[in-house]
């Protein structure tokens, strides 16, 4: 088990190198000159050259990459070209905000999505099921920014119950996390419905019923436990996505998260921050996947890692 975890962690190294390689060269294909952007409109050609030299951008790309990897091996992600702060610090300042938003959103999504999917599967083709499935379809197809704006219009502008953006009290969390959760809740509900429909029609469910168990026990203990693997997969993947920062939501609600940091850095051609943020996101994503795999083994006795 421990061995498995270590092996999995080690295997992230080549993946991260792969990501960094792609990222590094793609960034350098972007139009626009970072030195120019940083120096500003009024800068002289000399200023620009100086900044270019400072950033090491005057060397060949492959040299830049090797230097970058060398620093990475020492866990040094460099400094932001814009603020001169260490990249780690920049990312670290935003990460908790994104975690908070993602955590609340995924909790909301599970809290509503899983029960909705179960109800739908237990009473298929009834009005309740149609309500759940059509709401889910709505949730999946609704553009995030539109939903965000609508929520702002209703709850901030018209009712004035909740702030329209920014961070502060728990009230600030509600609208962006609901916006984020909408898609995920719909996705989880649909997944739960289809897997529960399947497990409820399996032989072991009939066996459970043939023993005289209460229907709630049959549904939760026998059917749901078997349906958990695909549900956990979806929850894990969605959580991983949310960690990457929900760019649109964070923009609509002026939420200082990882997604906005990445977008701002791209606009400013702040290469070190972009690279650092995306690498850390990649690492988190891999970690979430590892945790999901470990939960599998806990839920399903047929899965063992040793």
């Amino acid at each position: 088990m421990l061995q498995y975890v270590i092996k999995r962690l080690l295997s992230t190294v080549p993946v991260l190198i792969g990501i960094s390689l792609l990222l590094f060269f793609m960034l350098r294909m972007l139009p626009g000159d970072p030195a120019q952007v940083l120096a500003g409109q009024m800068a002289t050609q000399e200023d620009i050259e100086r900044i270019r030299h400072q950033l090491g951008l005057d060397r060949p790309v492959y040299v830049q990459y090797v230097l970058f990897l060398g620093r990475l091996a020492k866990f040094d992600l460099g400094r932001s070209a814009r603020t001169q702060n260490p990249v780690i610090q920049e990312v670290w300042a935003r990460l908790p905000n994104t975690m908070l938003l993602a955590g609340v959103a995924i909790t909301l999504a599970c809290l509503f999505g899983i029960p909705a999917g179960i109800i739908s599967a237990v009473r298929p083709y009834t009005w309740l099921d149609y309500l759940v499935t059509s709401t889910a379809l709505f949730g999946i197809s609704m553009p995030v920014f539109w939903l965000g704006l609508m929520l702002v219009v209703i709850f901030s502008v018209m009712l004035q119950w909740l702030p329209a953006g920014g961070m502060g009290s728990w009230k600030h969390v509600i609208l962006p996390s609901v916006t984020l959760a909408a898609f995920v809740v719909a996705f989880i509900a649909r997944m739960t419905r289809s897997t529960m429909m399947e497990t409820l029609s399996q032989d072991y469910t009939t066996t459970a019923r043939s023993k005289g168990l209460q229907e709630s026990v049959v549904i939760i203990k026998h059917a749901l436990k078997n349906a958990l693997i695909p549900i956990i997969t979806v929850v894990g993947l969605q959580f991983g996505m949310l960690l990457g920062g929900a760019v649109l939501t964070e923009t609509v609600f002026a939420w200082p998260g990882l997604g906005r940091l990445i977008v701002d850095s791209i606009l400013a051609r702040d290469y070190p921050v972009i690279q650092g943020a995306i690498l850390i996101f990649g690492l988190l994503y891999i970690l979430v996947n590892l945790i999901v795999d470990l939960i599998y083994a806990w839920v399903d006795p047929r899965i063992r890692y040793d």
């Binding site: 072991y204 009939t206 043939s210 436990k225 839920v299 399903d300």
Partner: peptide, 12 residues
Amino acid sequence: FQEPMTSLNPVL
């Protein structure tokens, strides 16, 4: 039941 492979619950 007929199918011993599928009529017991795999996760219990």
